[in-house]
Design a protein around this nucleic acid. Sequence first.
DNA 1: GCAGCGTTTTCACTGGATGGAAGGGTTCTC
DNA 2: GAGAACCCTTCCATCCAGTGAAAACGCTGC
Lengths: 282, 282
Amino acid sequence: MTAGTIADAAPTVEPGRSVTAKVLAMLAAFTAEEPELTLSQLARRARLSLPTAHRRAAELVEWGALERDARGRYRIGLRLWEVASLAPRGVGLRDAAMPFLEDLYEVTHENVQLAVREGAEIVYVERIAGLHAVPVWTRVGGRFAMHATGVGLVLLAHAPASVQQEVLGLPLRRFTDRTVTDPKALRRILADIRRLGYAVSDGQVTLDALSVAAPIFDPDGEVVAAVSLVVRADGAQPAALAPLVQTAARGITRASRVTAAGRPVMRSPPRPVPAQRPGSAR
Amino acid sequence: MTAGTIADAAPTVEPGRSVTAKVLAMLAAFTAEEPELTLSQLARRARLSLPTAHRRAAELVEWGALERDARGRYRIGLRLWEVASLAPRGVGLRDAAMPFLEDLYEVTHENVQLAVREGAEIVYVERIAGLHAVPVWTRVGGRFAMHATGVGLVLLAHAPASVQQEVLGLPLRRFTDRTVTDPKALRRILADIRRLGYAVSDGQVTLDALSVAAPIFDPDGEVVAAVSLVVRADGAQPAALAPLVQTAARGITRASRVTAAGRPVMRSPPRPVPAQRPGSAR
DNA sequence: GCAGCGTTTTCACTGGATGGAAGGGTTCTC
DNA sequence: GAGAACCCTTCCATCCAGTGAAAACGCTGC
C-alpha cells in the first residue's frame, strides 16, 4: 500500500480507520476556540476526504449531533448535548452538587469549582464565577493540568499510583514561580493532602489566586471529584476556608450517594410526547 | 421479552442503516431513567446484533464517548460530555446567561430556568432550583412540551409559523385543569406574549406553580432562548415579576451578543498539555 | 466576467462491517 | 450445589456500505 517513501505527500486517507472512529474524529474537531467549522475545515481536522466528511456530516446533522448555522458552518448540536447530559460523571454529579455549590457561592461570593479526573488531567464539570471574584481560567468542559490547581491536587493525591507516576514522570509545567514542579516536593504535598483532607494551591496557577479544595467520594469510598473555592491570594486564610469547602464536599458526597443508589433521582416528569424522534418514526 | 406476539421474533437487523446511524442509535439508547445499560440492553434498544453492538461499543469506550462501570455496564462518557459542552446553544448560551441567572436566584430564591426550542419541544439548558422553592419537574437536558410552561410559551410565540402549526395542530396535552388546550385560545395568548414581551403560565403544569418568562434574542433579532422564574402560584404577582425576568433576559441577550460576535470568550487558558489524545498519538 | 474558494453529486470499486454460531463466565433460583 | 438464565466475547465467510477521484455546481469578491 505505502506508495513511495514513508508517509508520502498527504496519502489522502489512511485506511483501516473505522467509520466510527471517523465520526468521532469529526466531533473531536471542534474546540472551544473554534466551535464552528466549515465542511473543509472539518474534513481537514478529522483527516477525511471531502465527500466522506460531507456524507458523515449530513448524517450527524440529520440526527442532531451537529447543526448548521445560517452560513452553512457546522457546530455541535443540541441533541448531542442532550445525550451527553446523561453522563453520570458530568451532569449527574453536577445536579447532586449544585445546591451545595450555590450555598458556597452565596456565602463567599468567590469562585466555586467542581472537577473530575479524566486520564492525567482534570475536567471542570461546573463552576460559579462571581463577576467580582478573582478571574480564573476555567471553563465548564475545559481541561487543565493536575499539579497546580486545588482540585487537581486533590484528585492527583487520590489517583491510582499509575496516574501519579505518569503525571510526576513528565516535566511539570510552571505557570508561576510558585508552581511546584519538583516531583519530590509534590509527593510530599500529596501526602499532606491525603492526611489533612484538603488541598491548598497558593499562587500556583496565577499569582493573585489561591484555591482550597476538598475530595468528593463515591459509595465505595473512592475519590471521584473535587470542589474548590478560589479566592484572592492576599489575605486569604486557607485554614479558615477549608472547613467550608470540606463541609460542601461532604454534602455532595452524601447527595450523590443517594442519587447513585436509589434509582429515581426525581419523580419522572410527565412525558409530553412519547419521546418519539423524527428519525425513529416508521 | 414478550415472545410470540408481533414485533418480537427480532428480524435480526434491518439492513441499509449506516454505521453512523447505528452508533448514534446506541447513544440515543441511554435515557435519564436508565443512564447505565448492559451490552444486551444497548443492542436491543439500538436494534443491533450483539456482536455489532459489542464492537461499536468497544470503539466508543476507547474514544471516551462511553464508559464502563465496575459491573461492565455502559454509560455516557465524560469525553462526549466535553465535546458536547461546545454546543453553542447549550453551554455557550449557558455561560453567557449564568451570571444573570445567579442574580435572579439570589434576589428571589425561586426556581430559575433557561431553555431553548428543539423542534416542537423545549429543552432545558440550565436551571437553578432552590431547595425551598416550589418543586418543578425539569432537568438540565430534559425536554418538555411547549404549550404549558412559561419558557415554552415564549419560544412558541416566537417560533416559525410551521412549528406553531405543528404544535397547535396536534392535540395539546392537559396537565392540569388550567392547562390551555384550545388552539384558538392559545393563539390569542401567543399574540399577547409577543405584544407584552413576556409570558405567564399560571398553574398550567402543576397547580401550585406559576412561571413568568421572557425571550432572549440573537444578534439578528431572532428569539433563541427564554428565561423564566417559577414561583408558588398563590399570591404571586406576575406583573411585578415580569420586569425582573425581562431585565435578566435583556442582560443575557447583550452578553451572548458579545460572546457570539467577538470570538474570544475569555483569554485562552494556558494549555497544560498539547491536548494530545491517546488515540491520536502516532 | 473571471478567479478562488467551498460545497455537492456521480460512479465503479473494495475492504470494513456484518450476523450466525459457538465457547465461556457470572449471577440468580430452587 | 446443581441447574437455569442471562450476559459477554471471539471466530469466520459473505457482502454491501463506505470509499475517493473527478467533475459539476454555487457563492463571493474583484
